[in-house]
């Protein structure tokens, strides 16, 4: 089923603040097989000029998909069983580190058909609870056969 184009421009409510913890950064770094001390050891991170351990570049995938609420809206018409990840991008103003409390607002920026597939792109603006923009993520998912 074609996705509902009326969703382009629609934004989520701000997420509940996500508290970035040393333990979660360590767990994520371990899961991707990365033993970089700047992820695991506060002293090493501080020696490199960071206030605390830093999150790996792809870490925001853990919390930035608050667009999930939009994607799950039945009015959009997305069949999750047919979804694959198409593209992903992270654009940083500064590194994320343990102690950050981050709020995400997700906006549908594009819906298009390519062949028989539907592509939907969601941008998430990630700010601190004080309102400092830290990172913007761009997530494109593909619904296979959605336009057929």
């Amino acid at each position: 089923m074609a996705l509902n184009r009326d969703f382009v421009g629609r934004a989520s409510a701000p997420s509940a603040p996500y508290e970035v913890s040393r333990v979660k950064i360590r767990e994520f770094a371990t899961a991707i097989g990365d033993s970089n001390p700047i992820y695991h050891d506060r002293g090493a991170a501080q020696a490199a000029g960071h206030p605390d351990v830093v999150a790996p570049p792809t870490f925001p995938i853990v919390f930035s998909l608050s667009g999930g609420a939009i994607l799950a809206d039945p009015e959009l018409g997305l069949n999750f069983a047919m979804v694959v990840h198409g593209e992903q991008r992270f654009e940083y103003r500064r590194p994320i580190h343990a102690g950050d409390e981050l709020v995400s607002v997700s906006t549908v920026t594009d819906i298009r058909s390519v062949g028989r597939n539907e592509f939907i792109t969601v941008r998430s603006d990630v700010t601190t609870v004080e309102g400092e923009l830290v990172c913007t993520t761009y997530n494109t998912i593909v619904e296979r056969g959605g336009a057929g």
Binding site: N36, P56, P57, H85, E91, Y92, P95, Y138
Partner: peptide, 26 residues
């Protein structure tokens, strides 16, 4: 897979905080 690419870049750069933009197509 994207994380492995990220690991490759951060290992080269020496500091993960040096990666200011990272995007891929699967």
């Amino acid at each position: 897979t994207m994380a492995q690419g990220g690991r490759f870049v951060t290992d080269w750069a020496g500091d993960p905080g040096a990666v200011v933009d990272y995007g891929v197509r699967f």
